[in-house]
Amino acid sequence: MTGWHAGDDLVARYTDGTLPEPDAWSLEKHLEGCGSCAARASRAARAGAAGPVLARVRAAVLDSVPHPARSPLPTPPLGPPAVSTSTVPWRARAAGGRLGRIVWAAGPALRGAWTGALLLVAVGALALAYGGGSAGARPLLLAVAPVVPVAGVALSYGRYADPLYELVATSPSGGLRLLLTRTAAVLAVSMPLLTASGLLLPAAGPRLPQVPMAAAWLLPGLALTLATLALSGYTGCRTGSAVVGGGWLLALTAPVLASDGPGPTATGSGLTDRLAQQLSLYFTGAPAQWGWAAGAALCALLLAARRTAYDRLETM
């Protein structure tokens, strides 16, 4: 510990949540080892707008704690211990509890309806191809796959998606770092599952990328996800996800519906063929993939440049 102490203005900005995220982390590290600054921060928090709320929470917590005179500790039962106290079941329960906590912290999307929708897309494409005999399952999957992570981001962050929003909003680490952590969890689940489903689908025709090009949507999906995060700094996660996802679907389906090329235009097979052609334009070839990579890099640079815009969850 050094002789430096936080100034009153720094402490006040920390307690009211206006201190930038890197400075707040640095001050929190100092408060861990400086009792006088920690006491001043505590007094500033009690004197601020959140003081009455903190007082009520503290009183409620103290009232809920059983008093030793009212609730004595239970007497341990006599006799030999039960057989169920074996170390193997205990270790299994501990591992399961740890995994559950990791899934819970990863984000609301992984424990909500989005996971079911992800499985429905993957399994539904396989059922459509092998159960329904449809040759358009691969184009449909590749068309939807890039926006599946975008929907997961929308359901992973913000006041309307996160049941722990109030707790996270009071933490300086609840900004861009949490947003990136939950986005990484969404990508880690969706990308392998959708890519594996694409690899298992039969080829739809020479105009659609073949195996291993079933993974050609990965860079577009990453670019759209990063674009959603970059736009969320201005509009919020839900609006940013809607704009990016809707823009992708519009850019993909508008040329397909407006096409007047040859073929059975009124039938589903004709629409599938034109969808395959449009996907080939967006996904196939080095220029297309390099374009998506450049877009992803630009969005990442914008995220880094505007990282302080994510310090406050109220804007998300």
Rank of each mutant, 00 (worst) to 15 (best):
V144H: 04
L313K: 10
Q277D: 12
A50K: 06
P74Y: 07
Y14A: 13
V57H: 09
D260M: 14
A38V: 00
V88Y: 01
R70A: 15
R91K: 01
T195D: 08
A309R: 15
A294G: 02
A216H: 03
T253D: 00
Y165V: 04
A39T: 09
R274E: 04
P202K: 08
L222K: 07
Q277K: 08
P255G: 05
L224A: 01
S42W: 09
A188V: 06
L62I: 03
L128K: 01
A55C: 00
A251L: 14
S71T: 13
T195E: 00
G247P: 04
A288Q: 05
T265E: 10
E21K: 03
L279G: 05
D16R: 15
M191P: 00
G261K: 09
P66I: 12
L281Y: 10
L176Y: 10
R58Q: 13
R93D: 00
S241C: 04
R111H: 08
L187P: 00
P139T: 05
D63R: 12
L229S: 10
G124C: 04
L218M: 14
L313A: 14
G107H: 03
T75M: 13
A135T: 10
D260R: 15
P163C: 02
L199P: 02
L118D: 00
A169W: 03
A276M: 03
H67E: 11
A55Y: 00
M213R: 13
G295Q: 03
L141G: 01
T75W: 09
T15R: 15
T115H: 05
T18G: 05
A145C: 01
R306T: 08
R307N: 08
L27M: 07
L31R: 11
A125W: 03
V256C: 06
R70Q: 13
A154V: 02
T18Q: 03
P20L: 11
R13P: 00
E166F: 06
P202M: 04
A45C: 03
A60W: 07
C37T: 02
V168N: 13
G97V: 04
A300N: 06
L252G: 08
L78F: 05
T87N: 04
V168G: 02
L179C: 09
A276V: 05
G17V: 02
P209G: 06
A214E: 11
L271Q: 09
A230F: 12
A230T: 12
A185Y: 06
C299W: 07
E166M: 05
C299Q: 11
R177E: 13
R43Q: 07
W4S: 12
L257K: 09
A203P: 11
G97R: 12
V123D: 00
L31D: 13
Q278A: 08
A55G: 10
G3N: 15
